[in-house]
Write a protein that binds this DNA or RNA. Structure first.
Length: 832
RNA sequence: GCGAGGGUGGUGGAACUGGUAGACACGCCAGACUUAGGAUCUGGUGCCAUCGGCGUAGGGGUUCGACUCCCCUCUCUCGCACCA
């Protein structure tokens, strides 16, 4: 009987399901492991990235299950969002229909992979029994002031017809989904106060030791903390002032101008006090800047644009009058929207001054050198040094000057020290239909009124017709929009914006734990037992999106008292899988280098697909797809199959007992026994400690090769052979579960391999009879010798020096030194 | 520019705290079995060569000994990018 995966794979999936092999429950008496994967968006079909993600996840889940852990390993679908609406228009269907159809298809695909999910726990975020809890969280946050509505300049994507959060504007200022350049628009929108958590989000990054450094750095940069001084600069000959923020208050004596953002409100105020001609010029300049997208603004290659307002600012420390300019490099949404211009010590200010011919005043010098000549400066001196031309602060090292001048500003009442973050509050409104409705109504009398908890969920009207022009379908649902005010009973309008889908994915990993809970989003006890997730596997593209939002949500849930107060982080370990590459580029439809997982599974089986993916490269590195490599993996499984099938009689008669090393009569059997246990040892360490799944596979291939060439299959040898085959199947089963399960059954086992115990390496079987040591002469390899292990430094040197070959090698040479490393080598240093 | 991670055979990739570079696999070559084989099995395969030499992006250093540690340079990928 040949290896026929098309029969074996469905057979075992059915048996696993029938025997509920992967059902899991909260069980305080057992150690838990929560293995979480980034759930897919139901775009239509799985791609190779999914296959890789879930192969790694299933391997982990199966490995830990066999190692005695109570393993939570769930899956779900992140099923709200734009693509469903686009597809609905294109294919003349309804987003719900399209989405549910895709979920069904992808569920079949996921099942065909043989992943050991607890399928009872599937979460679909587009269903009311899920999103009602997103709405419920929103209400809790609204009560606490964490959800609020404000008018602000926001990011607008014309193609998607909606606003976006800052995190969803990527690259050169384009929409994360459709890559349309994003423009600013002033709108009243809902926000979540994630900035309240900026400090903790940053601080706790230091505790996430199981996260890749790369992701931590990206989040650190995104949160962007900086300490500085916020202070007032008064405007000469007016009653006005401007607030500025700086991290380099030590350079305050070097101000030669003040720059404000084009969008800064002071610009209008000042414009109103200008001559009509000047005013028109200024407003024209400002609207020119504002109308450009972020992409256009940065595309100019850093060339800075500015215009003099004609007004002067007064430096608080010395009364110096400096011009106030409008500059396009000053951003309204960071700091105060105004900066003090210190060209001597800030490259941007320097560039600006170069262009517009403003002055330069150096106020920091290199210790031991004179004050630099501003005429001869070629770039700004941004490095620390000592203060100069700064009155009584002269001679202070930069850090000390920052400290002292900051104190001075506070004591004079000119300003205060402050910490700034780049992180902005999370804009969650979306002018889209296919999302979680925001549970508020607008009443003419009462204003914003939250929908009472008892009326949740606010269900999305499924009858809505999707407008072909891409607008929000909810606007076409008057019966849904028009409602009564929960407070006064009068007429009210429902909020027609829905929530950002990243809300859905910010807490789904809690819902998995209590999927049937209908009086709370999840049960506290379940969360206490399972959270935080021990390993989270997914792509790095979510480093500053989902992974920040989910951390924020976890902290909020904890502060709302819904979870243990100590649960501050959702994911202990994070594994960011590498991309799947083909022909040197990421798989993509436009390049035409996509390989369809379905076809691979159909042609070679899921076991082969998984094995190849796990073998071809370490999980966190990119993976080069190779059709030949897949065939190689398939061939290997064929060899494993034949190893059992062709020896089944001998294997069956061997029984289950193992023979200790000392009872093995021949060297070959002892060698195999040693190989078996060193393989178990290495594979276990590779998976558990290093996540080096590719080398784990390599070890198992070596074991298979060793078993294939093993000849003494009688008596004690037969028992060792069987032990080897069983160990191979046990260790290989997390990689390719179906074939291993089938062969396991052929060996006469009734218990499922999937729930069998992972083998333990017998340290007694790891001992070796001899070791190979090498002779080096001046560090170059010359001879190899077999010696007993454990010789001392001197014994080894003596023994190697006594060898004829050694003597020949050093004959007539002057031995200067002999270095001996036990069990490794002897290096003879010679001269002449 | 800043930050992170890489650069090892024809290819994907191994190499524990410095101690036999190239595990394992792909490809290739040769052979066996076959009507045939893109099936399977066996052997070979870093480079140059006659001993021997050279090899982990390049250059320097530390060391008895360096893919591994230190310094410099080049290069690739990813992320951020006027953040005051």
């Amino acid at each position: 009987m040949a290896y026929d995966f098309s029969v074996i794979e469905p057979k075992w999936r059915k048996i696993w399901e029938d025997r509920k092999a992967f059902h899991v429950e909260t069980d305080e008496s057992r150690p838990k492991f929560y293995c979480l994967e980034m759930f897919p968006y139901p775009s239509g079909a799985l791609h190779m990235g999914h296959l890789r993600n879930y192969s790694i996840g299933d391997l982990t889940a199966r490995f830990l299950r066999m190692n005695g852990y109570n393993v939570m390993y769930p899956i779900g679908f992140d099923s709200f969002g734009m693509p469903a609406e686009n597809a609905a228009i294109k294919m003349k269907t309804h987003p719900a229909e399209w989405t549910i159809g895709n979920i069904d298809h992808m569920t079949e695909q996921l099942k065909s992979m043989g992943c050991s999910y607890d399928w009872r726990r599937v979460v679909k975020t587009c269903l009311p029994d899920y999103y009602r809890w997103s709405q419920w969280f929103f209400l809790r946050m609204y009560e606490k002031g964490l959800a609020y509505r404000k008018h602000a300049p926001v990011n607008w994507c014309e193609t998607c017809g909606t606003v976006l959060a800052n995190e969803q504007v990527v690259g050169d200022g384009v929409c994360w989904r459709c890559e349309t350049p994003v423009v600013k628009k002033g709108l009243e929108q809902w926000f979540l106060r994630i900035t309240d958590y900026a400090e903790e989000l940053l601080e706790y990054l230091g505790k996430l030791t199981g996260w890749p450094e790369r992701v931590l750095t990206m989040q650190r940069n995104w949160i962007g903390r900086s300490e500085g001084v916020r202070f007032d600069i008064s405007i000469a000959d007016t009653d006005l002032s401007i607030e500025a923020f700086t991290t380099r208050i030590d350079t305050i004596f070097g101000i030669t101008f003040v720059a404000v953002a084009a969008e800064h409100p002071i610009v209008r105020t000042l414009a109103d006090r200008m001559t009509s001609e000047k005013r028109a010029a200024v407003l024209d300049f400002v609207s020119g800047i504002s109308s450009r997208s972020a992409m256009e603004r940065t595309a100019a290659g850093g060339d800075k644009m500015g215009m003099d307002t004609g007004f002067a600012a007064i430096n608080p420390v010395n009364g110096a009058r400096v011009p106030i300019w409008i500059a396009d490099y000053v951003l309204m949404d960071y700091g105060t929207g105004a900066v003090m211009g210190v060209p001597a010590h800030d490259q941007r200010d320097f560039d600006f001054v170069r262009k517009y011919g403003l002055g330069i005043i150096p106020v920091v010098r290199v210790p031991g050198e004179p004050v630099p000549d501003p005429e001869k400066m070629e770039s700004a001196a941004e490095a620390d040094g000592v203060s100069c031309s700064s009155g009584r602060f002269d001679g202070l090292p930069t850090q000390e000057a920052i400290e002292k001048i900051g104190e001075w500003f506070e004591s004079e009442g000119w300003g205060r020290r402050e910490t700034q973050y780049r992180l902005r509050d999370w804009l969650i409104s979306r002018q889209r239909y296919w999302g979680t409705p925001i549970p508020v109504v607008y009443c003419g009398k009462c204003g914003i009124v939250p929908v009472p908890e008892s009326e949740l969920p606010v269900e999305l009207p499924l009858g809505a017709a999707i407008p072909p022009n891409g607008g929000n379908a909810l606007l076409g649902c008057p019966d849904w929009i028009n409602t009564s005010c929960p407070r006064c009973g009068g007429h009210a309008r429902r909020e027609t914006d829905t929530m950002d889908t990243f809300i859905c994915s910010s807490w789904y990993f809690f819902r998995y734990l209590s999927p049937d809970s209908d009086d709370a989003p999840f049960r506290r006890g379940d969360a206490k037992y399972w959270m935080p997730a021990d390993l989270y596997i997914g792509g790095i593209e979510h480093a500053c999106l989902h992974l920040i939002y989910a951390r924020f949500f976890t902290k909020v849930l904890s502060d709302l008292g819904l979870t243990d107060p100590n649960l501050r982080e959702p994911f202990t370990g994070l594994l960011t899988q590498g991309m799947v590459i083909k022909d040197g580029a990421k798989m993509s439809k436009s390049l035409g280098n996509v390989v369809d997982p379905d076809e691979i599974i159909k042609r070679y089986g899921a076991d082969t697909a998984r094995l190849f993916i796990l073998f071809a490269s370490p999980p966190d590195k990119s993976l080069d797809w190779s059709d030949k490599g897949v065939e190689g993996a398939h061939r290997f499984l064929g060899r494993v199959w034949r190893l059992v099938e062709e020896n089944i009689k001998s294997l069956a008669s061997a029984g289950g007992s193992t023979v200790p090393m000392s009872d093995l009569p021949d060297a070959e059997s002892r060698g195999l026994k040693r190989l078996i246990h060193s393989t178990i040892d290495r594979v276990t360490r590779d998976i558990r400690d290093e996540r080096q799944l590719n080398t784990a596979v390599a070890r198992l291939m070596e074991l298979c090769n060793g078993l294939s060439s093993f000849t003494s299959r009688d008596g004690a040898g037969r028992a060792v052979f069987r032990e080897g085959v069983e160990s191979l199947l046990l260790c290989l089963s997390p990689f390719c579960p179906h074939i291993c399960e089938e062969l396991w059954e052929m060996l006469g086992h009734e218990e499922l391999l999937a729930v069998s115990r992972w083998p333990a390496a017998d340290s007694g079987a790891l001992v070796v009879d001899t070791v190979t040591v090498v002779l080096q002469i001046n560090g170059k390899l010359r001879e190899q010798y077999s010696v007993p292990p454990g010789l001392s430094r001197d014994e080894l040197a003596e023994r190697v020096l006594a060898e004829e070959a050694t003597k020949r090698r050093i004959e007539g040479l002057d031995v200067v030194r002999v270095i001996s490393v036990p069990d490794k080598l002897v290096n003879i240093v010679v001269r002449g």
